[in-house]
Structures are given as C-alpha cells and as structure tokens.
Amino acid sequence: MAMLHIVNKSPFERNSLESCLLHAKPGATVLLIEDAVVGAAQGTVLSDRIQKALESVKLAVLGADLEARGIAQEKLVDGVNVVDYAGFVDLVTGHDNNQSWL
C-alpha cells in the first residue's frame, strides 16, 4: 500500500505538513497544493526538514499554485516534483488511497 497525502496549508501558519510528515509511511507521496506549496521552497526554515523527508517519501507540488504564488520551479528543494492538475489526478489513481490534511 502506498498513500497519497494532500496538504493545502502553509507550513509557516499551521502544523498540517508537519503532522502529515509524521504520519506518512515510507514510499508514500506528499502533494502540496494551494498555500502549502510555499513549504517546498529552498532557503526557508523548513528546507532541511523537506530535504530529510525526501529520504523516505516522494514530494510533489502543484505547478499552478506555485506560479500563482510567484515561486519559480528552480527555487524548489532538489528532488521535489512539479505536477499539473492532470498529474494530480494521476497521483490519486496511482496510489491505493489518499488523505487530505485539512
């Protein structure tokens, strides 16, 4: 089993991403959408945490939300994938189950 975790809150405001990473099992994918995409940027207080998370889970961000917030793809932590809405759909179908961290 591999689960898709969907996070939509800025990790600088709420603990959703932190709680999600605490519960995501190795092999799971964490998709950041809406305000959560800011958590994948380089040079933040969380970048090291994200880098470490990549050792056990896959991380993806929704490109549309990234662009809307003025974050260039080159500024993402290495290893974070960018997907479009079609890619979001593929992540849902490609995992056994999914959970939104509201």
Binding site: I6, V92, N98, S100
Partner: peptide
C-alpha cells in the same frame, strides 16, 4: 467510487 478526494480548508 474507486477514489474519494476531499477538498477543504
């Protein structure tokens, strides 16, 4: 359904 996806806040 095969999948249920939740969108919220």
């Amino acid at each position: 359904s095969d999948r249920l996806v939740v969108f919220g806040d």
